[in-house]
């Protein structure tokens, strides 16, 4: 049986983008969100569990800097976690406009990624998520790219290549920082060999936290970046 027939027999495996605030753990690990505790003491205790300083107590409330969260799960189950995947947030500038809302090309640059963000990015081209249906394509050359997608905390030895890739892109261009590392340095930066995320090297337009952000969140972020939907 040829692969062609085998492919046809597999049928359509692409899923509709699930909506809602209560996605299963199979699709997203979720992100901690602002939680009110009974006492200030309790809030401080929760905050002390966080290894990256993503949690910050203000009186009885614990606020979350999602860019810093590395999903170590240590604040679970006390801290409340959001279970959606619409996590992206504009840092600077706005979405692409005009002709660039229908179809965009994305150049991924690995600036020190541990491999999980890249693994999730690989899923985007898979049957389950099928990024192509939104007119978004991954391109091997920055010359044809509209979006620079940075993963990893930006290591010192990837700093120059990353800058070169950004400079090689034609305007208009946008930079999307994917993952806790690219958003804030994550567990690695800022440190002796790592910057505090992509913003240290190139102007970041959209930040997507998560360690790693699941494919759904990346789809939302890319669609937000080309103006196909608004970030939550």
């Amino acid at each position: 049986m040829s692969w062609f027939i085998r492919g046809l027999r597999a049928g359509v495996l692409t899923e509709n983008l699930p909506e809602g605030q209560n996605l299963p753990a199979s699709l997203t690990p979720g992100l901690p969100r602002r939680t009110d505790f009974a006492t200030e003491q309790e809030a401080l205790e929760i905050t002390s569990l966080c290894p990256t300083g993503a949690l910050r107590a203000e009186e009885r409330a614990v606020h979350v800097t999602s860019e810093r969260c590395v999903e170590c799960m240590r604040c679970k189950p006390e801290q409340d976690w959001r279970r959606d995947a619409d996590w992206a947030r504009f840092a600077d500038g706005g979405p692409l406009e005009g002709a660039f809302t229908r179809s965009i090309h994305v150049r991924i640059v690995d600036a020190g990624d541990c491999g999980s963000c890249l693994s999730e990015l690989a899923q985007l081209n898979g049957p389950s998520y099928n990024l192509h249906r939104f007119g978004i394509f991954i391109t091997p050359t920055p010359r044809q790219a509209d979006v620079l997608l940075v993963v990893g905390p930006v290591t010192r030895q990837m700093l120059d290549p990353l800058k070169l890739a950004y400079e090689a892109m034609p305007a208009p261009k946008r930079v999307l920082a994917v993952g806790a590392c690219a958003a804030s340095g994550g567990v690695f930066g800022p440190s002796v060999m790592c910057a505090a995320g992509a913003a240290d090297a190139v102007p970041v337009d959209l930040v997507l936290p998560g360690c790693p952000p699941p494919p759904l969140a990346i789809v939302h972020a890319l669609r937000a970046l080309c103006g196909q939907e608004r970030p939550a």
Partner: peptide
């Protein structure tokens, strides 16, 4: 290129 100096951190 991706050396993050984990041992140093």
């Amino acid at each position: 290129y991706k050396y993050r100096a984990i041992e140093k951190i």
